[in-house]
């Protein structure tokens, strides 16, 4: 029996939550790819930033799962946006949904692990998603733009 050299792998409940968070990252990457056609040039930089952040999180999450002996969940073959994306407003709205879903998934990881490193990385992911969701709500002219408890299931 092979023991990992550093620490024990996170327990099954944590790994399920991490798989769900990976699923949210895949969905967010799909959304960022979808919206760029509907957003003017001024949004190019923040869309690129969000895409990079979600890809990086996806990659580290896949590595974490593989190291724990799990098969990382692949992206779904197809996604459906909750509302049709046809213009700037609907594009901003679906970005908010993607970031909010990601925040919920990572907060769930926080509550299902005692592993300090995983907690730290889940908090980073939750905070990043919350900050981007706030920026997209601001861009859409929504007030209040921030949520008091990002990631708290509604």
């Amino acid at each position: 029996m092979r023991q990992p050299s550093s620490s024990a792998p996170p327990p099954a409940e944590s790994l399920d939550a991490v798989q769900a968070a990976l699923g949210a990252e895949h969905a967010a990457i799909w959304v960022y790819g979808l919206v760029s056609a509907f957003l003017p040039e001024q949004f190019e930089a923040p869309v690129g930033e969000g895409t990079t952040a979600h890809r990086a999180r996806r990659d580290t999450t896949e590595r974490l799962l593989a190291d724990a002996g799990q098969t990382p969940r692949p992206p779904e073959p197809a996604y459906v946006a909750p509302q049709p994306v046809t213009d700037q407003a609907s594009a901003l709205a679906v970005l908010v949904v993607a970031e909010s879903d990601t925040a919920v998934a990572w907060r769930a990881v926080l509550e299902r692990t005692d592993d300090k490193a995983l907690r730290t990385s889940a908090l980073e992911a939750l905070t990043g998603a919350a900050v981007r969701a706030t920026r997209w709500r601001r861009a859409a002219g929504e007030t209040p733009a921030a949520r008091a408890f990002p990631g708290q299931p509604a």
Partner: peptide, 29 residues
Amino acid sequence: AADLVAGLPAYRAGLVGSVAAGCASLRVV
């Protein structure tokens, strides 16, 4: 809030994590 998250019992980590993320979001506003 962020400094506390790693060391808290799991059932409190979500709440405090959301408080940390909420403060970072308010900073954007």
